[in-house]
């Protein structure tokens, strides 16, 4: 007697992979596959007018962190690249902190509204989230440009004589990224705050905790998974941001994304660009693995 459950399982397996195939083919073609080719390209020699020459070279990777002095051929750290890398990490962390500062109280505020109002407040968070990132960047750009709303207003009021230069600084990139990524923080934090059982807060007060102690010892530990998820959701795209630093940094304050683009444009060094983009990917993956580990531990704690 043939084991019927195995034949049935085999049939189910065939159906499953047939259903998955179209999606996986598109993704291999336009998502995973290209990444592998990028890895290959990072080990080739740059062509004179962009592209590559099919000759093995580790220069691409070498140039990520180091450079050879053009005069005396000595080795040194690539200060330009390192400062851009540092700026990317620094601005991403600062964006995450700023989003935490604004996002957590906002999520708490929404979660403590009456039930029928919450959806309306969340819609106000969702609308910017669904709005074109470029449009939102433009909106904040128009606010802080030298000819922008703030400067025009201040000049008209006579508070200043000449426009304040706000654009094309690290501060403006930070503001832009805070503005575009803020909804990404509010959404997951709100999701975990909405599930918060307020009888636990009552128990905290009952056991003599002050408002701040309740926040720190009861509420925050309970919504930690949402806070971590929100931080990752903000940190990861900040690190790879391209549009916002390009618009708000104006080509002066490069971030990793812009440095990568440069290699495929004026820089004409595709292998270096490929190596930089793999580097960015690795940093992001490390952050994601850190997140999965932490989230896993949280799950274990809560049973």
């Amino acid at each position: 007697m043939a084991d019927l459950s195995t034949t049935v399982a085999k049939r189910a397996s065939r159906t499953r992979w047939m259903l998955l195939a179209p999606a996986l083919i598109i993704l291999v073609l336009a998502a995973s596959g290209p990444l592998l080719i990028t890895l290959v390209y990072s080990f080739l020699t740059p062509g004179d007018y962009g592209g590559v020459v099919w000759k093995f070279s580790t220069d691409g990777w070498f140039n990520v962190f180091a450079q050879r002095d053009i005069f005396d051929d000595t080795l040194g750290w690539s200060d330009a690249h390192l400062s851009i890398l540092w700026r990317s990490i620094k601005l991403s962390l600062m964006t995450t902190l700023a989003c935490l500062f604004f996002g957590v109280p906002t999520a708490y505020f929404i979660a403590t509204r009456p039930k029928q109002q919450r959806d309306m407040w969340m819609l106000l968070i969702m609308i910017p989230f669904w709005t074109n990132l470029l449009i939102r960047t433009f909106a904040i750009l128009e606010l802080i440009r030298n000819e922008g709303t703030i400067n025009t207003l201040l000049l008209w009021l006579g508070i200043i004589d000449a426009p304040i230069q706000m654009l094309y600084t690290e501060g403006s990139i930070l503001l832009g990224m805070l503005y575009v990524y803020l909804p990404l923080m509010v959404l997951p934090v709100y999701a975990s705050m909405e599930r918060l059982d307020f009888s636990l807060v009552e128990a905290g007060y009952d056991l003599y905790a002050t408002r701040f102690q309740v926040l720190r010892r009861v509420i925050m530990p309970l919504v930690k998974p949402g806070v971590i998820a929100g931080s990752i959701l903000v940190f990861v795209p900040s690190l790879g941001a391209y549009v916002t630093p390009r618009v708000m940094g104006g080509g002066n304050q490069l971030m990793l994304g812009n440095l990568i683009e440069l290699q495929f444009g004026q820089g004409r060094n595709w292998p270096l660009g490929a190596a930089l983009s793999i580097t960015l990917l690795v940093i992001v993956m490390v952050a994601l693995i850190f997140y999965v580990r932490t989230a896993g531990k949280e799950d274990a704690h809560h049973g």
């Binding site: 290209p34 795209p237 983009s277 992001v284």
Partner: peptide
């Protein structure tokens, strides 16, 4: 994957391919 990999990385990879 498209949610996890930074857009610029995918963009560059697609440019190459």
């Amino acid at each position: 994957q498209p949610l996890m990999v930074p857009e610029i990385v995918t963009a560059v990879a697609l440019l190459i391919l």
